[in-house]
Design a binder for these strands. Structure first.
Lengths: 139, 139
DNA sequence: CGCAATCATATGCTGGCGCTTACGATAAGC
DNA sequence: GCTTATCGTAAGCGCCAGCATATGATTGCG
């Protein structure tokens, strides 16, 4: 059958696992968890008004990320400020230190990612990333 | 920063989750688990000589897939035959029924996948799949 | 023949995740 | 003022995966 190809998930899943496996030591070296890094990444883009909104934005469970937020706050990487307009909610923002950590981590992670893509021709590499970004932005 | 892009994992992970979420009802409709489908896929390509080798080939835990193999065998989708050359081992193969089920499921899954990719231009779609396959084959 | 290795199997432990419920504090709407 | 909704928090439940250990049967090697 000339139209046979593996399922996308079957091809992507091991790739994602590989990428995550590469990330973990980088994150560990900076004392940041995967969810912690996701939080920092989201907040680096924009502050968020409630923890529930942040959890939803990064695909986390609102109960489960509380511990993560506690740690990040403890480490001085984020701030949680009661919203003066609604005292049920807490404004979440990244600290300058958090921003530095996040950007350092990202730089190292993306260097690792380039390694994974070395088997591709440079044009394919660029195209792959462009397409991924399109798919990501279309969600 | 013009060189800023999201991490690959950050882009791929939600995509994989989406694809898996699409697969689950298809698999459920055919009474096959995700690991079961992985087993069928692997055996559709080639029989395997030991359960441990199969587990390794699909990235599963050799103990944990025993239940899955039991179910597949019970459902008549695979066969386990003692290896006459080494009675510790069991030759694993897919039955004609298993092959039919697997190919039906794959067809439906890949139709779903095409839906996910509709936001891409057709040329990009082909390129994306080609690149993924290259990355997959390079492992 | 004895020992180490291999195979399938069963099971335990741990941690993570998804989802849910419940609670106190706060806010919005009628 | 009362009811419903929202927020953060805590905790429970069930499932799953990763990893490890143990066992009996079998095999290969010295």
């Amino acid at each position: 059958m000339a139209t046979e190809r593996p399922d996308l998930a079957a091809m992507l899943y091991p790739l994602v696992r590989e990428l995550i496996a590469l990330e973990l030591p980088v994150l560990a070296a900076h004392d940041v968890s995967m969810w912690g890094y996701s939080v920092l990444t989201a907040l680096d883009d924009t502050p968020v008004r409630t923890q529930a909104a942040l959890a939803e934005a990064i695909g986390a469970d609102k109960s489960r990320i509380i511990g993560t937020l506690d740690e990040l706050q403890q480490a001085g990487l984020i701030e949680r400020t009661p919203d003066p307009a609604d005292r049920r909610a807490r404004l979440l923002s990244i600290t300058p230190q958090g921003r530095r950590v996040r950007r350092t981590v990202r730089k190292e992670i993306q260097a690792q990612e380039e390694q994974v893509l070395t088997s591709l021709a440079p044009a394919d590499r660029k195209t792959f990333v462009r397409i991924l970004q399109e798919l990501h932005d279309a969600r």
